[in-house]
Simulated scan of single mutants.
Amino acid sequence: MSATRRVSLPFADREQAGTLLAEILADAGLADPVILALPRGGVAVAEPIAERLQAPLEVLVTRKIGHPVQPELGLGAIAEGGEPVFDLGMLQRLEIDEDELAPVVERERRELARRVSAYRRERPMPALAGRDVVVVDDGLATGGTARAALRAVRRSRPRRLVLAVPVGSSKTVTALRDEADEVVVLATPPGFHAVGQWYLRFEQLTDADVLRLLRQGR
């Protein structure tokens, strides 16, 4: 099942987008929900959702797996608690074997662990088994990190797994429907090139911003 709503674009900022998402999720019949935000931008969207639902807010750290020579070219992603998820079509076109990406994966595992430590300190991940889990990001472009996140959460056996984003590529949203029990998207506009084009304010957040938002959410 998926849900899409018509909204006026662009969003003012991530907080406004999260407030709009929260109104939809409040009527979704979620039971004992946990809100997991993909840092950094997803945390700013998730904070008003957690407040509206009176649900715990936590980060789910993900890392892109880039090309060994062109790191900005994403070939996959990894999320804490999960295994690497590769774009197999891209690997085939570039004639790259997964084994060749082992050094990149190991480097991203180390950075992932650093960020988990920085964001969560000594806090354990909330128990997810048997609960409704909402994974939140600020938008879907290729969907690589969202896919890795959803597969990692699925391993914890949630009762219901929801992906909630303000805006996304219609192709990516369709592709992710099989990864979640429900996909909630406010808009899938034509001419989608990058998430930031659909926000008036889309500043890069820092680790300090993430920690501040998590404190607010708790």
Rank of each mutant, 00 (worst) to 15 (best):
A129R: 15
R109H: 03
A141N: 11
L30A: 00
P68G: 06
L53Y: 12
A44Y: 08
P10L: 11
V185R: 01
P84E: 07
E47W: 07
R157G: 02
L161V: 12
F11E: 09
P39L: 11
L94P: 13
Q197T: 11
L30G: 00
A55M: 07
R123D: 11
H193M: 08
P33R: 01
V134I: 15
R215P: 00
E100K: 09
R114H: 06
R6S: 15
H67W: 06
L57N: 00
V135M: 06
L211P: 04
R151N: 10
L60E: 08
D27P: 03
A3P: 01
R120W: 12
V105D: 05
E95Q: 15
R114D: 07
L75G: 06
R154T: 01
V165L: 07
R157T: 09
A194L: 10
P48W: 06
L112C: 05
D132M: 08
A3D: 11
A46R: 03
A194P: 04
G76E: 02
G76K: 03
L214W: 03
T174W: 09
R110M: 05
L36C: 04
L176D: 14
K171G: 09
G89P: 03
F86Q: 01
L30W: 00
L9I: 14
L20F: 03
F11W: 10
R14V: 03
P84K: 08
A22R: 07
A17D: 11
R159Y: 05
V183F: 08
A37D: 07
F202N: 07
R155F: 07
H193R: 14
E83F: 04
E111F: 01
R131T: 15
A118R: 09
V69M: 05
T142E: 06
S170C: 04
A37F: 08
G144H: 02
V167M: 13
P158M: 08
F86H: 02
E15I: 12
R107N: 08
D209L: 11
V185T: 13
G29C: 04
V162W: 06
A37E: 07
P10G: 08
Q92I: 00
Q70I: 03
R215Y: 00
L213I: 04
D99H: 13
E100S: 14
T172I: 09
D132V: 09
H67S: 06
P166S: 10
E111P: 02
K171F: 11
V135R: 08
D27Y: 04
S169Q: 06
P68F: 05
